[in-house]
């Protein structure tokens, strides 16, 4: 095998994947190094435990490696990796049992919520970390299909198309889920933290 690693230009993900499949462990290590930070940040949105974050990210990379040969090069490597990470996180949340049971309400069947005109800003007295904790708590109590789109859109800053790719759903579904997720988030916010949600009487 040619020693692509000694080339000067930064290696493309696709090259590293090919080398890793060919048995070069350093190529895989480079891929891990390239994306570990983003995956730590991603997992962090679902849990605040460093041990759990590390487990989720490690598991993601181990799964990715074990099925590296199924990567089709049709999407970006990171999209593929992100999809594995999302599944790993959801799997993890299920096992941990803190995720609300989805059967209780099938959010896809719930009718479109009334357009919510309320403006709900965090109270100015709240520290940034307190805001983050409230948000985290509310997200934890949401059905995962809402939670994932909210995290991807609001915290990961992903475009609808990227979310659609990762979750393997249509853009229209992303749109409607996100719409419902926000309405739900807002609802929980004003019910659970009325004292911190400002500007309710718009």
């Amino acid at each position: 095998m040619a020693l692509k690693l000694v080339q000067e230009a930064p290696l493309q993900d696709a090259d590293l994947v090919r080398e890793a499949i060919a048995g070069n462990p350093l190529s895989f290590q480079l891929l891990v190094e390239r994306y570990q930070g983003r995956l730590f940040a991603l997992a962090r949105h679902y849990t605040s435990s460093p041990v759990e974050v590390e487990d989720i990210v490690q598991d993601t990379f181990l799964k990715a490696y074990s099925r590296l040969d199924t990567f089709q090069h049709q999407s970006a490597f990171y999209t593929w990796l992100y999809r594995i990470a999302t599944n790993t996180v959801l799997d993890f949340l299920k096992r941990r049992g803190r995720c609300p049971v989805q059967a209780v309400e099938d959010p896809e069947l719930v009718g479109s919520p009334e357009t919510d005109h309320r403006i709900v800003r965090p109270d100015a007295r709240l520290e940034r970390q307190e805001v983050a904790e409230i948000t985290h708590t509310i997200l934890e109590g949401m059905p995962e299909i809402f939670r994932t789109v909210l995290i991807m859109r609001e915290l990961e800053d992903m475009a609808y198309q990227e979310i659609a790719d990762v979750l393997d759903i249509s853009i229209g579904t992303v749109e409607s889920r996100l719409f419902r997720a926000r309405a739900r988030f807002k609802e929980k916010l004003v019910t659970q933290y009325p004292e911190f949600a400002q500007g309710l009487n718009e």
Binding site: V120, R121, Q129, V131, T135, K186
Partner: peptide, 10 residues
């Protein structure tokens, strides 16, 4: 207004 709730955590 909802954006303001989504702040980066530690």
């Amino acid at each position: 207004s909802l954006h303001a709730w989504f702040v980066p955590t530690a």
